[in-house]
């Protein structure tokens, strides 16, 4: 079954062609993911280098909140499940279903941010601030950068879900999903780096 949005006047030649066999949107999105891998890769490689050098950072890391981290891992994994279910709906032409699942995903993104905020609050109250030491600087910068990606993903999904609810641009559901899963994968690595390795 082919899913087509509302018919538009005429489509551009550039978008009609598909020499690589991958639709342009998805191809471009994989390049976005590639460029994101090297951004987070550079940050985490730097962190890892410092961490391996300073054994004493283990004591600092002991003060991160493993329970909050684990909760957030669970929240993001579940949100990824909803994102992929939205994609399944989209491939079946069920725009309303896709929109509904995307809204669940956005809600879980919100839960993630709330947990994160509570976690930051607790840590700051106990004196583990950005400037306490370079471990904490890395902790706040890495999780903060990740949280920014979560916010960006939520906004993108909100836009896509509105369109999908009206049956428009359903291929976008998959694209925003790939981005969201990437954000999930980053968290999967942040979790052991900051919360388990102590």
């Amino acid at each position: 079954m082919s899913v087509h949005a509302a018919t538009l006047d005429h489509e551009s030649l550039a978008c009609r062609r598909c020499a690589s066999g991958i639709p342009a949107g998805r191809l471009a999105l994989w390049w976005v993911v590639t460029s994101e891998i090297v951004i987070f890769g550079g940050l985490l490689a730097s962190y890892l280098l410092f961490r391996l050098r300073h054994v004493s950072w283990g004591e600092e890391a002991a003060h991160t909140n493993t329970l909050a981290g684990a909760t957030n891992t669970l929240v993001l994994l579940t949100s990824s499940l909803f994102a992929v279910l939205a994609h399944r709906c989209a491939t079946q032409g069920d725009g309303r279903g896709a929109s509904r699942f995307l809204r669940f995903t956005i809600a879980l993104g919100g839960v993630f941010l709330i947990v994160k905020a509570l976690e930051y609050t607790g840590e700051i109250h106990h004196g583990y601030t950005l400037l306490r030491g370079t471990f904490w600087s890395f902790y706040y910068v890495a999780t903060g950068l990740h949280a920014l990606h979560v916010v960006a993903g939520m906004i993108a999904m909100a836009v896509v879900s509105v369109g999908a609810g009206r049956g428009r641009q359903l291929q976008r559901v998959e694209l925003v999903g790939i981005y969201w899963h990437f954000v999930d994968v980053v968290w999967i690595f942040l979790f052991p780096l900051f919360y388990i390795a102590k």
């Binding site: 390049w31 590639t34 460029s35 994101e36 891998i37 090297v38 951004i39 987070f40 890769g41 550079g42 940050l43 490689a45 730097s46 950005l130 400037l131 370079t134 600087s137 890395f138 910068v141 950068l145």
Partner: peptide
């Protein structure tokens, strides 16, 4: 460009934190 610029972006974030927030990367 895409493959090499990522670490600089990460570095720039760290540098910006050093400049405006006073971290010590």
């Amino acid at each position: 460009f895409m493959g090499s610029v990522g670490p600089l972006v990460a570095g720039a974030v760290m540098m910006l934190m050093d400049q405006v927030a006073g971290t010590a990367f």
